[in-house]
Amino acid sequence: MSKQKVWYITGASRGFGLEIAKAALAAGDKVAGTVRSNPEHLAEQLNHHDNLMVTVLDITDEAGAAASVKQAAEHFGRIDVLVNNAGYGLLGAVEEATSGEVRQNYEVNVFGLLNVTRAVLPYMRSQRSGHVINISSVGGLSGYIGWGIYGSTKFAVEGITESLAMELAPLGIHATVVEPGFFRTDFLDETSLSRTGNVIEDYAATVGGMRSFATEVNKKQPGDPRKLAAAFIQLADSEHPPVHLPLGNDTLARYREKTAQFEQEISDWHSVITGTDHDDVI
């Protein structure tokens, strides 16, 4: 990979995407940042940097993704780092979410990510180098009350990335899935978070509590987005990047809690788990 890297970052207008773009430019790299509208606003936020190009993209548009990626590759000559950042949250009980709300969350968080990834990989394969970085969530490692549908989209991103890492390794391309915890971005604002239209009273004590918590904790989350962006620079510079990179003490604690509980369940049900093979299997 060349010393000066070319980044392609989706959802670069705010939140993680904007902070990563700032950090990459500050590191001397080049950035193609995508926005859904108003490209001039992102250019202004990044001071019309010489190493910046802004492209308009709705990641659910497969043809649009291919055109945007081609524009970036032709402008900069290559793409070294793909950051699949664009996405949004959906808060509500699994039962409360309508089929339309569920499908749209998957259209953006999963199918949109795949649209962009398929568009970028031919360029990385021709280079025999590159790094695909997919942003998941602590909710992609462990379920949370009220985040079942959103978390399931991130569980999908986890599985996609793990397989990508194995498929791309022989081609000189890395794949990493990053699992941020609760960071102080606008994720819990209405601009990034949707709430189900249906509200079922029976879930007041569980999902209702999460709705209140999401409102109360907004802009008080422990994670620093600028430190996350710095971690992305380290990740992109690594010769041997991890497949998984959980970011935040809250993410690490949640993951360890889950694995400890999982191990306990395995111990409690060990005889059942190991007793399902055919008798002729040694």
Rank of each mutant, 00 (worst) to 15 (best):
S2V: 13
S2I: 12
V6W: 06
T10G: 06
G15H: 07
F16E: 13
K22H: 05
L25A: 05
G28Q: 00
K30C: 13
V31R: 00
A32R: 10
T34G: 06
T34P: 02
T34M: 05
N38F: 04
P39H: 03
A43C: 07
L46T: 09
N47V: 12
M53W: 05
M53Y: 00
T55G: 12
V56A: 09
G64M: 02
A73I: 07
A73Y: 03
E74P: 01
H75L: 06
G77V: 02
A86E: 13
L90E: 08
A93C: 04
E95M: 02
E96G: 00
A97T: 11
A97W: 01
E101V: 02
N105S: 15
E107I: 06
V108N: 09
V110I: 14
F111V: 09
G112K: 02
L113R: 04
N115C: 08
A119S: 10
V120D: 00
L121T: 05
L121S: 06
P122V: 07
S129Y: 06
G143R: 01
I145G: 00
G146H: 03
W147E: 13
Y150H: 12
T153N: 00
T153C: 06
E158Q: 13
T161R: 10
E162D: 14
E167L: 05
A169L: 12
P170C: 01
P170A: 04
I173M: 03
E179S: 10
G181M: 02
R184C: 04
F187E: 10
I200C: 07
E201I: 00
G208C: 03
M210P: 04
R211P: 07
K219R: 15
K219A: 06
G223M: 04
R226A: 15
R226C: 12
L228K: 04
A229D: 03
A231P: 06
L235W: 03
A236G: 11
A236M: 04
D237N: 15
H240V: 15
L247V: 09
Y255P: 02
K258M: 10
T259E: 12
E265G: 11
I266L: 15
I266R: 11
D268P: 02
D277C: 04
D279V: 14
